[in-house]
Amino acid sequence: MDASVILFYVISVLLVLSSLMVVFLRNVVHCALALVVALFLIAILFVMLHAPMVGVLQVLVYAGAIMVLFLFVIMFLNPTASEPRRKLWWGFGSAAALLLAASLAALLSNGEAPADPVTATETFGSPETLAKSLFTDFVLPFEITSVLLLVAIIGAVVLAKREP
């Protein structure tokens, strides 16, 4: 087996394990940290798929900024008592998970491999390639997204500056 295939399986197993830990650990801070590990492992998968830029952004944005804010809030609220198990939600969650698993299984079992798979080149996910497609082919969606983010920032500032 190829070394990269072995690496893929090792990382995938770790990824599934850490994702399970996010759901099943009883301590909220431990759950959040397991999620950080999962996000980091996904970043490694991106790097292995010749998309280092996306991988680094994954670490920078999700693991480095958003999860820190999650931890921030968790530590401020400091939920000492573990969450009680809610039977109803367990039922809903299990049903949704089963449904997802069934649809995934159906997709994977009757799906056919594409006739001419495209092999990603070394520069497929490089910053240059990504920037070029962002600022030429996808410039309108890109700008609209940035305006959306700007609106969200202004909204946050307005909410935070509420008069006493």
Partner: peptide, 11 residues
């Protein structure tokens, strides 16, 4: 990216 992970040590 690595620098942004440095926050976790202190948190």
């Amino acid at each position: 990216a690595i620098g942004s992970l440095g926050v976790y040590g202190i948190v």
